[in-house]
């Protein structure tokens, strides 16, 4: 039940525009019952990677296997049968506004050939009243809607759950709750969870491991506590320094200057070198080896 992503390259091609290498050689493993948080600034390729895992973006190079079987671009129906379910950022867009939520959850149950479970049971599992099954999506708040989207995903008994910024559109108070809910439900059912977010403090709360992505590459990966307490890649360090602390001290967070470069024309050498305070000569010409920390300051011994 392991998801294995190896040297994955995913390119976007659109007519008259340069090829965008949105994922440029990324490797990542998610084991059953494990929660991996994928973080990085917008545009670094998180969604492209997630969509490739679901067979929604074709693999250009490298491989993605789930339970040892390669993931190939599939129709929606076949994809759901593979046991990977995705929860998207916008619960408004992912639920059908005209159908009762109970019926939409029942679709998921049908995918898993589950004739026993009542959709209301799933509502209960995501912390909503059973009688909500008869209502329509517009009758709910954003947080409730996202819980419904999670219930529907769970109904299909996924062995791998992928959340692509599933909490970004929610309120702060709902964010931590929904993230924790996803974690508990995935872990309890023995499924793996790949949780994508640009909010490190929430990822820290629920992930066993954190993978940090920059411009199509995983630049650091490790146990959550290790990455949080002792970030080693200069990019991870900058990300963590930018989080303002609620300590009441009035300290402005440090700015990481410069935008994420255009992935259609990534910098030579280390992709982070134009923004890195420690950049050395080698960084400008040679790309660091992939590893737990992809940085010339942390060469594998």
């Amino acid at each position: 039940m392991t998801l294995e992503i190896k040297d994955l390259v995913v390119e976007h091609r659109s007519p008259g525009r340069p090829v965008v290498r949105a994922v440029a050689g990324a490797s990542l493993t998610v084991r059953p019952g494990e929660v991996v948080g994928l973080v990085g600034e917008s545009g670094c390729g998180k969604s492209t990677l997630a969509r490739a895992v679901c067979g929604l973006n074709p693999v250009t190079e490298g491989s993605i296997t789930f339970e040892g079987v390669p993931v190939t671009p599939l129709g929606l129906r076949r994809r759901t049968l593979t046991g990977v379910q995705m929860v998207f950022q916008d619960p408004y867009a992912s639920l059908n506004p005209r159908r009762r939520v109970g019926d939409q959850i029942a679709d998921g149950l049908r995918t898993a050939r589950d004739g026993e479970t009542d959709p209301a049971d799933l509502l209960e599992r995501v912390g909503l009243p059973r009688e909500f099954a008869g209502r329509h999506p517009h009758e709910f708040s954003g947080g409730q809607r996202q819980r419904i989207a999670i219930a529907r995903a769970l109904a299909a008994r996924p062995r791998m759950l992928i959340g692509d910024e599933p909490i970004s559109a929610l309120d702060a108070s709902a964010q931590a709750q929904v993230a924790t809910l996803m974690r508990d439900l995935a872990v309890d059912s023995g499924a793996g969870l790949l949780f994508i977010s640009h909010d490190l403090s929430v990822v820290r709360l629920i992930a066993d491991r954190i993978a940090v992505m920059y411009l199509g590459r995983i630049v650091e990966i490790g146990d959550t506590a290790e990455v949080w307490d002792d970030p080693r890649h200069p990019y991870t360090q900058a990300l963590l320094r930018a989080i303002p602390k609620p300590d009441g001290m009035g300290v402005l967070p440090e700015e990481l200057t410069g935008d994420v470069p255009d992935p259609a024309a990534p910098p030579e050498g280390c992709r982070f070198h134009p923004r890195c305070p420690f950049a050395m000569d080698v960084c400008r010409v040679k790309e660091p080896e992939p590893g737990p920390v992809a940085c010339w300051l942390h060469e594998p011994a």
Binding site: E41, L200, A242, P253, E254, E255
Partner: peptide
């Protein structure tokens, strides 16, 4: 916004 960008906007506002 991303936290890195947020930091810049907060400094700007201040």
């Amino acid at each position: 916004l991303d936290v890195t960008v947020q930091a810049g906007v907060l400094r700007l506002l201040r």
